[in-house]
Design a protein around this nucleic acid. Structure first.
Length: 257
DNA sequence: AACCACTGCAACCGCGACATC
DNA sequence: CGATGTCGCGGTTGCAGTGGT
């Protein structure tokens, strides 16, 4: 059985909102609030609109604290960073940007930021590293030094990866200001370390010919949440697609610690 | 001036999640 | 516990504005 429509589409107005409709909706909501029911609201307010349409209009346009356009460089960075970490969860991303709506952020990403990111990637990969003739099979290998929370811990996780892809992702990472520009001669230093995580040092080392590499990191001594968060950080930011292959290695190791 | 392609953004649609009955 | 109603989200569409030819 299909879902019943939220309103009678034949009897509701659609398309752009007029200033009069905006005023009616704004006045009603300022006086009465939503009453916890958007579906019933248009009838109460005297609008020939679908409740969903009213909700959207209020949330995306009429709310008093909304900002439109003029995204700052800082907002760009936040959007890029979060997009690379969590993907297209626009409501979550928008929640980190006061005055921005999910729709605004989504539109901004689709029309401008995505192209900006891609253009930047094209520029930064104009002299790509040499490609292995045959893409190596992905493998994970634990080179960890084992669990001893009383000492400074150093952990390496070996991986094999398509070096072209890895380079692109590291460059992207760098563009976001989260990593020093890699020269790809051998390694890239993650700098500064992820906020709130006490990683003492970290780097990515890659052989651009073979595609073999290691993620190396050490903490100040406590491997609990810090290491997990760092795993999340890598898994989310640096290797959104590829790192999933390595992530299980992290977690299986951490679980055994 | 007319046409076309492109861009940006408001609005719509469909669906999953959640609440309530 | 299943059926129903509503909310909220992400993907997509439609259209006005703009610039190029």
């Amino acid at each position: 059985m299909g879902r019943a429509p939220c309103c009678d589409k034949a009897n509701v107005k659609r398309g752009p909102w007029s200033p009069d409709e905006d005023a009616v909706l704004r006045n009603y909501l300022q006086k009465h609030g939503t009453g916890g029911n958007w579906i019933a609201l248009p009838q109460k307010a005297g609008l020939k609109r679908c409740g969903k349409s009213c909700r959207l209009r209020w949330l995306n346009y009429l709310r008093p604290d909304i900002k439109h356009g003029g995204f700052t460089e800082e907002e760009d960075n936040i959007i890029c960073t979060l997009y690379n970490k969590i993907g297209s969860r626009w409501s979550v991303i928008a929640s980190q940007l006061p005055g921005r709506t999910d729709n605004d952020v989504k539109n901004y990403w689709n029309t401008k930021l995505k192209k900006k990111m891609m253009a930047s990637n094209v520029t930064s990969t104009s002299t790509p590293p040499s490609q292995p003739s045959v893409l190596p099979a992905i493998k994970t290998e634990d080179h960890g030094s084992g669990a001893d929370s009383s000492k400074s811990l150093g952990t390496d996780y070996g991986f094999t990866y398509d070096s072209q892809k890895l380079y692109t992702e590291i460059t992207q990472f760098s563009m976001m200001g989260l990593m020093e520009q890699p020269d790809f001669s051998g390694s890239a230093i993650i700098s500064p370390p992820p906020e709130d995580i006490s990683i003492a040092s970290s780097s990515i080392t890659v052989d651009s010919n073979s595609g073999n590499g290691y993620i190396n990191w050490s903490t100040d001594g406590v491997v609990g949440d810090d290491a997990l968060l760092f795993g999340d950080f890598f898994g989310g930011y640096g290797f959104q697609e590829g790192m999933g292959v390595v992530s299980p290695c992290y977690y299986s190791n951490l679980n055994s610690m």
